[in-house]
């Protein structure tokens, strides 16, 4: 324990990251550059989220880490262990008990409260990147609210697939100003982006932090005649019977057998414990 500063990062670095976080909260949806550090894990494994979490943690915190909704996958387990060892904080799998939740690609099903912080791991923070490769140009486009290109992407979707085929990392407009990539969460989660908790987004490789303060206005981009549709698999959870949750498709055998289960493992387990079961 004494081999590490609290939460691994040194205090100067955490101050630098906190400044970026505060700036991000002050300008919702704006990507704040920060001096991302080398972390003891490869890029793509949540280095951005881990640095943001490290800068937020205090000894009294209780940390939950989820990867695609699950608490028990490799990424979630290793990050949880990382902070249990370097910060000595308590950990939990229960959403309601956690004060800080680091997530990869999901928002928990249970609504979060004002005393919680949700930290997202972000691979590519720039929503305009696939259409405009030049960083200088995308920054100027954000500065000038030059967002026609974002709808071009959706247009291309409809032209090619007959509907907006973007199912995750679905772009949003924040407070009528910045267009933001909500990280690769399913578009099912987009309506939850306006919430009571603080949401922080960290992209380690791309060195960007952005944020949504509580109760922020977040609108998913769409067309009048192709409105945003937060769709999900049309089935109940095979374990808890929930019909209102985001589901993972699980292949069960080599004969094409499959089932749909809640992607939020904690939520599903809670429902099963309370006596809910599949019909």
């Amino acid at each position: 324990m004494s081999d590490y500063n609290f939460a691994y990062l040194d205090e100067q670095t955490k101050r630098m990251i906190r400044r970026a976080i505060l700036k991000g909260l002050a300008v919702p949806g704006y990507q704040v550059p920060f001096a991302s550090r080398e972390m003891p894990m490869p890029y793509g494994w949540g280095t951005g989220g881990v640095q943001v979490t490290a800068a937020c943690l205090v000894p009294e915190d209780r940390l939950k880490v989820i990867d695609q909704g699950a608490d028990d996958t490799t990424n979630a387990v290793s990050i949880r262990k990382f902070f249990a060892r370097t910060a000595g904080v308590a950990t939990t799998a229960h959403t309601a008990e956690a004060s800080v939740i680091q997530t990869r690609h999901r928002i928990p099903e249970v609504p979060l409260s004002e005393d919680q912080i949700l930290v997202y791991q972000v691979p590519i923070p720039e929503p305009l990147r696939f259409l405009e490769p030049r960083e200088t140009e995308t920054r100027r486009m954000h500065a000038l609210e030059d967002y026609g290109l974002m709808h071009v992407k959706l247009y291309e979707d409809i032209a090619r697939h007959g509907a907006i085929a973007t199912a995750y990392a679905y772009p949003v407009r924040v407070e009528g100003r910045y267009v933001m990539d909500p990280s690769p969460i399913p578009k099912f989660d987009n309506p939850k982006l306006s919430m009571a908790a603080i949401q922080l987004f960290g992209a380690g490789r791309e060195q960007r932090i952005y944020a949504l303060p509580p109760y922020c206005d977040v609108v998913s981009l769409d067309f009048d005649d192709f409105p945003f549709d937060p769709s999900k698999a049309d089935a109940p959870c095979a374990l808890c019977g929930a019909t209102h949750t985001y589901l993972d498709e699980v292949i069960t055998d080599d004969a094409g057998g499959r089932m749909f289960v809640c992607s939020d493992t904690d939520y599903c387990a809670g429902r099963q414990a309370a006596g809910e079961a599949a019909p």
């Binding site: 030059d146 026609g148 290109l149 071009v152 247009y155 291309e156 769409d222 067309f223 005649d225």
Partner: peptide
């Protein structure tokens, strides 16, 4: 079509049809 439509969308057109 996307190339032609871009300027329309840039000035606020939001009806795909």
């Amino acid at each position: 079509g996307g190339n032609v439509g871009e300027r329309l969308m840039a000035v606020g057109a939001r009806h795909y049809g």
